[in-house]
Deep mutational scan, measured.
Amino acid sequence: MGFKLLSKLLVYLTASIMAIASPLAFSVDSSGEYPTVSEIPVGEVRLYQIADGVWSHIATQSFDGAVYPSNGLIVRDGDELLLIDTAWGAKNTAALLAEIEKQIGLPVTRAVSTHFHDDRVGGVDVLRAAGVATYASPSTRRLAEVEGNEIPTHSLEGLSSSGDAVRFGPVELFYPGAAHSTDNLIVYVPSASVLYGGCAIYELSRTSAGNVADADLAEWPTSIERIQQHYPEAQFVIPGHGLPGGLDLLKHTTNVVKAHTNRSVVE
């Protein structure tokens, strides 16, 4: 069995187990497998329904001669939608809004960016022009300005110390501490036991640490421990890039980060 097929099978099995364990909360999309990078042309966006009122959005972007996937989250909030992270750029984010209108038909009224990198804030200006209120932590807003990236308009308070959590509509926002970046936030959907790890969490097929220019490698494993301790009931975990899975993604990420750190020390 090929690795790609095995990865998709694991996603399907995880979703099936969740649907059985929580039949009222989960209505997993039966329309197909989780979209992969090879299936999404740059400039297009796919939506994948995880649970009743919960979707991931998947886009792709060219970077350094390669094409990478990027995940975000959409959560229903009454007759409105909360968006977590842009679709990595203005063109993708405009396509995301169009796809949401086509498939869901509810307005996106608020959006949260989970850290300051372009795959999370690139497209904020498109959201703002569409009347979406954009939010991020003060740290993310400051770092985005320093980096020359787009800056969300509103500040999220109460997320300055490791372990801080605040309720934001249908989700809980959690600051686990520094990891992929010093400002990275985690998003949890309690009604569906869905954990969105953003770039602080890796997919299972990833074996290298990737972009760690703004990471705190020493603190990252401790931050992941905080996530595990705060959300032990999480059933569906979405990484910032690639295929979702279960809580095993947290341990896998820790292993990859520690291996990278150990290699760096040896070198």
Rank of each mutant, 00 (worst) to 15 (best):
A136W: 10
R206H: 15
I84E: 00
P23V: 09
S208M: 05
L73V: 05
L143A: 05
I50N: 13
P35F: 03
I20T: 11
A133R: 12
G198A: 03
K8D: 15
L97E: 05
Q228V: 07
N149I: 05
S161V: 08
D216N: 05
L81A: 10
P138W: 15
S223G: 10
D85L: 00
I201F: 15
V11T: 10
H230N: 05
V257P: 02
L159C: 10
T207H: 06
G242A: 02
S193A: 11
Y231D: 02
R226K: 12
G240K: 01
R110S: 05
R167W: 04
V42A: 10
G210F: 15
Y34E: 12
Y68G: 09
R226P: 14
A165S: 10
F63A: 04
P244G: 09
A209S: 12
F174M: 15
S137A: 07
P41D: 10
Y135T: 04
T14G: 12
D52S: 10
Y135D: 00
G158K: 13
A133L: 14
L97K: 04
T153W: 03
F3I: 15
H252M: 05
G43M: 10
H180Q: 00
L6H: 12
R76F: 14
L247S: 13
N71W: 02
S22W: 10
P232G: 08
N92Y: 15
P190K: 01
A192L: 04
I100E: 02
A15D: 07
A234T: 03
I201A: 06
L24E: 11
S155P: 06
S27Q: 14
L247H: 15
I186L: 10
V121C: 15
R167K: 04
I58L: 09
E39D: 04
L73M: 15
I186M: 10
D164R: 07
Y196D: 03
L195R: 00
D85F: 00
S113W: 02
F168H: 06
V75C: 12
L247T: 05
N211F: 13
V257T: 06
G53K: 03
I84R: 01
S62D: 08
V146I: 12
T207W: 04
A200V: 06
K4P: 15
Q229C: 09
L159W: 05
W88S: 12
S31R: 13
L247F: 02
N184D: 03
D125K: 13
